[in-house]
Design a protein around this nucleic acid. Sequence first.
DNA 1: ACAATATAGTTTAGGCTTCAAACATCAGCC
DNA 2: GGCTGATGTTTGAAGCCTAAACTATATTGT
Lengths: 183, 183
Amino acid sequence: MSTQSPDQPQAAALADDVTAIVEAHPDHSDELRLWLRLLAVSNLIEAEIRRRLRERFATTLPRFDLMAQLERAPDGILLGELSRRMMVSNGNVTGLVERLALEGHIVRETPETDRRATRVRLTAEGRSAFAAMAEEHSGWVAELLAGLGESDVADLYRRLGDLKASVTSATAAPPPQKPTGDA
Amino acid sequence: MSTQSPDQPQAAALADDVTAIVEAHPDHSDELRLWLRLLAVSNLIEAEIRRRLRERFATTLPRFDLMAQLERAPDGILLGELSRRMMVSNGNVTGLVERLALEGHIVRETPETDRRATRVRLTAEGRSAFAAMAEEHSGWVAELLAGLGESDVADLYRRLGDLKASVTSATAAPPPQKPTGDA
DNA sequence: ACAATATAGTTTAGGCTTCAAACATCAGCC
DNA sequence: GGCTGATGTTTGAAGCCTAAACTATATTGT
């Protein structure tokens, strides 16, 4: 797995065009393939977990995620902070909170000190519902990853950390724009 | 990173409860952590790519994916086949195709031999638009993964393949139910 | 105090996604 | 020909998601 172009070193007649194209556009196929596989695996696992959350608990991944955030914050969280932690938009949180409140899993309250804000907390019912879901959930994940050895898990974890660092640094700093004069 | 439970082997008073719990619920935290990181990395990259597709080409990832499928099928694809290849529902494809057709990127036609079906193809405009997008897209991916060495890419690719196999085998065969009498 | 600005959330418009039900057509059979 | 069951697609309801516009409240500068 190094360069994708299939082996036709003999077809000389048209080869010049191909060569020119390849030189103008360096080969990114290994990275592309890696990304496509990463995406496929991630979607595969996610779809299965969504399916089970729906079948077993009649809930969804976003609601589960939101409850997971609340469980770690016994005193509740402001919506804005929730939106930051979940990495989704404010408006999105508004809707999720509305539905979870209807289900009785969480409650909203307005702090005395800032009447713009809304703080949400798990109800007792929500806390115990989440505990049940979280336990099964972690079992599902373990089941799906059961084909990996202990060292595979550790290795993948570390390498994905490297990848995350690569992505973060690539998105944090805007790409080198016109170091010299490539216009 | 092996077992999560913090070390309090001395706290004997309450330890029995903890022990019982741990034995009843084996520790899955390493797998869980791996899954959360995989999901985070995947979402990070995906969000960046969606953002760039929107900014540079005023399009979306699903539309890009659909066009990518069509590009590999010069004679067009039936909607059902498209839905299978993209791993999304039929109804989803209906909407995507509608919007891409409005944009002039693709055309729909009904085969003479089966008037239930719809075959979609890229237009000439769609083909060249896709070529431009695909080239930038692969550059973005390479850029985001640039922090990884060549061997890192190959390693990750292989390990993700193992992971995919694990997930596939876990979801294909329903979990062992009553090993003896299910005949 | 008051105007300007900033912050916390909600709303709106639009797109993606699924599932289930409806619709259209086809293929086989009587 | 006309049933019947399978196949290909669309529709409708519901949820998730975002960006942008908007409301309400708080803070800051003067």
